[in-house]
Amino acid sequence: MLVVEDLVKRYDRFVAVDHLSMTVERGHVFGFVGPNGAGKTTTMRIAATLLAPTSGSVRVAGFDVMEEPIKVRRKIGYMPDFFGVYDNLKAMEYLDFYGASYGIPYKERQKTAEGLLNLVGLANKRDNYVDSLSRGMKQRLCLARSLMHDPELLILDEPASGMDPRARVELKNILKELKNMGKTILISSHILSELSEMCDSIGIIEHGRLVVSGDVKNIMETVSGRLTVRIKLLDDMDRAINILKEQPLVSDIFQEDDMLEIGYKGKDEDLWPLLKTLVASDVPIISFSKTDGNLEKVFMEVTQDEEMV
């Protein structure tokens, strides 16, 4: 449905997207994760025909975004991370306006708008002015707007940002429903846990590069094949780190206050010799525990950079 090939976007010297390639299958929900400024929004804007790439190509349903932008626009529903609404327009009129922009006949777009207001739970707000709605409601209305022309691919840039927990749950339910309707969804977030439940596959982007991508299940398996150990120390952090660095099975080390978190490639039975070594070296350990791997971990690992000791 969405094919990104060797995409590069450069602003003067700054490279926002750096040779990024990825594919989103039809009917899939693809989670696009990365820290702020990693290039998620840029990639999405290019896919939404709002930005020209420096090189590389993006195809939506077979149409190149540069060569046939109008055809691409009919296929996609785009919801930007920040968006505004018109004052003096009612929710229903707001949807009607965008419906008209897609050239949908009046009666049809009225019907679609009613249906979408129901879907996003705003049916009772149809005659309220858009600027009187809460942020969460505006976001749902914007989602409804992006669905007016029944697009095949939804590009949602941080749709859950600024939503309270309740609104997030509601959004998840709406997205599930959309997935059941057969929509392909590209959704971005800088918070991974938000996405892990509802995505089929994820891609982690950093500095404009896709560092990991694939099935959520596969990624989870990769992670669970590796142990994460949390070690709490009273003191002597540096010495502990030096000792750990010498261990061949320790893959990476994160420091967080008085806590060390390490990736361990060995099995459970390899763990106690590690503890023994540390204790034998008089490192004041007060807690040593194995934690389950999760997507957060993958995210931390692949986006480590400065955080890494």
């Binding site: 709002l50 626009r73 996609i76 930007p80 920040f82 968006f83 505004g84 922009s101």
Partner: peptide, 13 residues
């Protein structure tokens, strides 16, 4: 400024 231009530009208009 109102951040509505992008929404308008990604329609087929």
């Amino acid at each position: 400024e109102k951040q509505t231009l992008d929404l308008l530009l990604c329609t087929p208009l």
